[in-house]
Each structure stands twice: as C-alpha cells, then as structure tokens.
Computed example of a mutant assay.
Amino acid sequence: MRFFLGGMINTGFSYLLYLALNLVLPYRYAYLLAYMAGVVFAYWFNARFVFAVPLSWRGLFSYPLVYVVQYLVSALVLEGLIDRLGVNEQQAPLWVAAVMFPVTFMMSKLVLMWKRTTKRT
C-alpha cells in the first residue's frame, strides 16, 4: 500500500512537471526530465518508507539502473500511444504509468531488498 501511495504521489508530481515542461519543450524531452526527477523521488520514498532500506549515495546511484529499463519500455509505450494510436500527449503518460506500475514495483523490490540481504551475509 505504501508503494502505491508513493507511486501516486510520484506520478502526480512527475505528471505536473511533464505538463509544465511540455509547454516549452517537445514531449520527449519533457518526459525525460520529469522522469529523471521522479526516479530521485522514487528512490528516496521507496528506500525510506516502503522497504525500510537506509539511504546511501551508492543506493542513489545504483537504484536508477532499474529505471533505465523501465524508462526505455515506458518511452516506447509512450511513443506508440501518441504516434501510432493517436492518444493525446497530455493523457498518454497516465496510461504509461498504469501499465508500468506492477513492473516497477517488482524491479524496485528486487533491487532494494537484494541490497539489504547482501549486506547481512
């Protein structure tokens, strides 16, 4: 439930940032910048409140590797929705977030909990 709450907060924050940036940038660049800000927030929120993992510089720089894969998939989905299916640029990121939510949860859990179990051994 905490992951869901953090995801909703992050989605809202990222979406509003995307909309603001999309006023002055093409959607691809607006999405990239909003996405990067969302990754930093997701690391902080998930480490602190979802999986109770201590924050660290190493964690901050390794956690986004999960999001590289997630970004590539979500960017392809975004482009497909907009360019191929004709979904509105302002609505498409919400569809992408819904599709990627369960994938992101599993990848986040694996990475953050893996780091925790390797420190215990």
Rank of each mutant, 00 (worst) to 15 (best):
M106Y: 13
V99Y: 03
R120V: 08
V111F: 07
L25M: 15
L81W: 02
G86Y: 12
V73F: 13
Y31E: 06
A42W: 10
L85V: 02
V73Q: 07
K115R: 15
L112I: 00
R28E: 14
F101I: 02
W57T: 09
A97T: 12
P93R: 05
A37T: 07
S108D: 14
T117W: 11
D83N: 14
A20N: 07
V66K: 04
A20Y: 09
W95P: 05
V24A: 14
T118D: 04
L110N: 09
K119Y: 04
F61D: 01
L94V: 03
L85M: 14
F101D: 11
L21I: 07
M113F: 06
M106V: 15
L33Q: 04
R84E: 10
V103D: 01
V103K: 01
L21Y: 04
P102A: 14
E89G: 03
W57L: 15
S62L: 14
A42P: 05
R116S: 12
P26Q: 13
V24P: 05
K109P: 08
S74G: 13
T117V: 13
N22W: 03
V96H: 00
M113W: 02
G38K: 09
L78P: 13
V24T: 14
L112G: 10
W57Q: 14
P54S: 09
L60C: 02
L85R: 06
L32T: 12
L19Y: 07
F45E: 09
L19P: 11
Y43F: 06
A20M: 12
D83H: 11
Y67E: 00
